[in-house]
Structure formats: structure tokens, C-alpha cells
Amino acid sequence: MDSILRGLATYFFLLLIFRISGKRALAEITTFDAVLLLIISESIQQALIDGDESMTNSFLLVLTLIGVNVLMQFLGTRSTKVDKFLNDVPLLLIEDGHIHQDRLKRVRVTEDDILEQARAQFGVERLDQIKYAVLERSGGISAIPKYVSWANPEVSNKVAESPS
């Protein structure tokens, strides 16, 4: 029973701390984040096993962690509230070309971050070429440039009209 309680306490503590840290906490893992992650797992490991190095204990812990995660995911598909608590909601950072500076500040994202993603995804050159930028639930950023045909009907018409 101890193992299960320890597993549950650890799961919900980590869930809480990562939800409080915000979406961007570990969205893009830098070298330092990877090191941090290792240290976190190392520190939590001691509390998790509590000196009991038996196979039964480790299997029970894995079972508890995976089990509660599956259960939470299942509850998330049943209830919007649980889903929002677990996964958060997406947020528009650039809306129809307008940059929501207040939101950028809140979620600790810079214009550079958005541009970087837009460059990587669509080869976008400038911020004003981005129509929408979304901070996804995973913490990643998706950018939709203005010149993508489906984002801008005018462009798609021009493409259709242009002689091949």
C-alpha cells in the first residue's frame, strides 16, 4: 500500500508543480533542461522507493504511475474540466497579424521564439508575415504564415489564376 500512496503523492505533486510552472517550463528542452530533468528524477527517486529496492516495489510504482496517468487521460476525454486541468488550453499569441504583447509576457514567450518556429516550419522571414501564432497545449508554438494558401483566400485565388 505504501508504494501506491508514494506513487500517487509523487504523481500529483509533479503534476501540480509542472502546471504551476506553466506550459513553457520544459517545452523546448535545452541541454540545461535535460540536466535539470535528470536531477529532478534523481531527487524524486529516493522519496519514491524509500529504501525498498525490491522488484515488487518498483513494479508497483510503475503500475501506479502509468495507471493513474491512463486514468487521468480517460477522465480527460470524459470531462472538459479535467482535460483543461491536465493539458491546459491553447492560446493565440498572434491573431490575424496582431501580436498580443500582454499574452506573450504572461506565458514567457518572445517574438524571437515565434519567429524561430515560423522560420523552421515555413521559412517565414519576418514577423509581419505571420497570420496566426498559437501557444499549443504542449507548450510548443505553431505559426501560420499569411502566404499559405489556406490561410489567405486572396493568395489562393491568385495562385489559381496564375498561368502555369
Binding site: 491553447p90 493565440l92 491573431e95 498559437v134 490561410a151
Partner: peptide, 20 residues
């Protein structure tokens, strides 16, 4: 929202910022 379909929820977002 405009041309984009998104499950954005600004009310929830604001509440979650306060909770944070």
C-alpha cells in the same frame, strides 16, 4: 477565431494564470 479553429478559452486561461 477569425480563420482559425481553436479550443482557446481566455476565461480559463486567466483563471489558470491567477492559480499559477
Amino acid at each position: 477565431i477569425g480563420d482559425i479553429e481553436l479550443s482557446q478559452d481566455l476565461d480559463y486561461q486567466r483563471r489558470s494564470w491567477i492559480a499559477q
